[in-house]
């Protein structure tokens, strides 16, 4: 199953330990994380469910393309990294 890792910076506000979740897209994988950690959702996604403006998600080292729909595919062995962008803040 895909592995999801969160930036260390988010841990100060809400604990987001790394984990393995089911999902064939970034959306499915993140939503699977948020089922068990609902408070984390608002730290990563905006009110409309898009990736926050100054957050960035990598799948196997590549930035995702669909920041709104989070439809980028993830393989069962994928490593998903949820990071802060260096813009904004």
């Amino acid at each position: 199953m895909p592995q999801v890792h969160f930036t260390a910076n988010i841990q100060r506000h809400v604990s987001c330990p790394p984990g393995e979740v089911a999902g064939a897209t970034v959306r499915e994988a993140l939503e699977a994380v948020f089922v068990g950690n609902p408070r984390a959702r608002g730290y990563v996604l905006d009110d409309q469910g898009a990736l926050r403006k100054h957050m960035v998600v990598f799948v196997d080292g590549q930035q995702i393309r669909d920041r709104v729909g989070l439809s980028d595919a993830v393989s069962p062995s994928a490593r998903i990294h949820v990071m802060q962008a260096l813009s904004g803040g």
């Binding site: 910076n9 988010i10 506000h13 608002g42 730290y43 100054h54 962008a85 904004g88 803040g89």
Partner: peptide, 8 residues
């Protein structure tokens, strides 16, 4: 106002 992480 956490900036990257939104308003809480």
């Amino acid at each position: 106002d956490h900036g990257h992480f939104g308003c809480k």
